[in-house]
Design a protein around this nucleic acid. Structure first.
Length: 244
DNA sequence: AAAGGGGTCAACCGCTGTTGC
DNA sequence: TGCAACAGCGGTTGACCCCTT
């Protein structure tokens, strides 16, 4: 026995939204806020399914959306985030203010895939097309669940202390991932000289996301990639992280 | 001018995760 | 603990537009 449909399909509109429908949806959300998408269509006087309303609002009508072309910086950030996160479009979108998961997914499939292919890079693995896939027996699977738990404890303590002083606390991006770590690629990235350390790369997580100048960057300090989320690894190359 | 082929992107579908009872 | 309702996610579809022939 399947789940009951989210709405009465016989009495709902489908396809492109009209201007009037948009206006009704905007007016209703302005008046009542987001939430309870199932009951929203009826309350707003729309012959649409709640899911459809949610999608229309999130992907098109939200006032904080950034319309227009993606910048070169956004392109590179998407590529880096995709190499880390895979097809987790909502997580990637979370790192790009004003962009939606649907928009990024479409942009990836129409532009970036081809861009990477033209560079000779496999968009799925982020490895050179000529390079054979990593042998599975060289790939070690690490569950981030335990790390996340440990992080939660530490963050919890920090937050208690910090909230008394300042209020909010910056924390690691909530990736909640299970990653597979394989031996690093043969061809190493071009590492800026100050970030090299005796032949070993010591890029922090922020730098690997291309955020060298962010306040989360810890390269300049004593911490290194080896301490990333408490993992005692000598090298953590984002290109070798694969989604489980 | 018309046909058709490819690219783009809004919207839909089906599944999973979360929450409340 | 199990179930149902709901929100959210990622893959896919199809309408539309533009360019080429």
């Amino acid at each position: 026995m399947g789940r009951s449909p989210c709405c009465e399909k016989a009495h709902t509109n489908k396809g492109a939204w009209t201007k009037e429908e948009d206006e009704r949806l905007i007016a209703h959300i302005r008046a009542h806020g987001e939430g309870c998408w199932r009951s929203l269509p009826k309350a707003a006087g729309l012959l649409r399914c709640g899911k459809s309303c949610r999608l229309r609002w999130i992907n098109y009508l939200r006032p904080d959306l950034k319309r227009g072309n993606f910048t070169e910086e956004e392109d590179e950030l998407i590529i880096k985030l995709h190499s880390l996160l895979g097809n987790k479009w909502s997580l990637i979108a979370g790192r790009l203010p004003g962009r939606t998961d649907n928009e990024i997914k479409n942009y990836w499939n129409t532009h970036i895939r081809r861009k990477l292919l033209s560079r000779g890079i496999d968009p799925a693995t982020h490895r050179p097309l000529s390079e054979p896939a990593a042998a599975s027996d060289h790939v070690k699977t690490i569950s981030f669940a335990a790390v996340a738990k440990e992080e939660e404890k530490v963050i919890g303590r920090l937050e208690c202390e910090e909230e008394e002083k300042n209020g909010r606390v910056e924390r690691f991006p909530d990736l909640n991932l299970e990653l597979r770590i394989s031996p690093p690629c043969q061809q190493q990235q071009q590492i800026p000289e100050p970030l090299k350390s005796g032949g070993r790369t010591t890029l922090c997580f922020s730098c690997r996301l291309g955020l060298q100048n962010s306040k989360e960057c810890s390269c300049s300090g004593s911490s290194s990639a080896s301490d990333f989320l408490g993992l005692k690894t000598s090298i953590l190359d984002y290109r070798s992280l694969e989604m489980k």
